[in-house]
Amino acid sequence: MNYFINHVCHFFRFQIIIFITVFVLLIPVQVYAGTPIIHIEIRNHLFIPSEIIIPKETKVKLIIHNKDETDEEFESYELNREKVIVGQRKGVIFIGPLPSGVYPFFGEFFPKTAQGKVIVK
């Protein structure tokens, strides 16, 4: 048994090194106190407000209220987010921390009108 464990350890030298690297990478996770909350409404396939401003390098909780009958999918390639917001319901999405910039988002089901952007300052 002992031999087997030794053998496995020896065998996985390479993998163990990567595991350690992975966990070193995981260390600089910042802890944020009190996540700011921002409400967005979807009405008539529009985001209201269609522009939100959030502080940079901060995690933000978006609460999206869908006031339409139809579902909508909040989607943003720049923010890496995708979530279906059911009609007449609300959904929660955490975004950030982000470096400053403009991050457009849109409603994938009605993309012509449901357009908006997150401005990180």
Partner: peptide, 8 residues
């Protein structure tokens, strides 16, 4: 583009 009166 601008949103007003419930439309884009």
């Amino acid at each position: 583009y601008k949103n007003f009166l419930n439309h884009r």
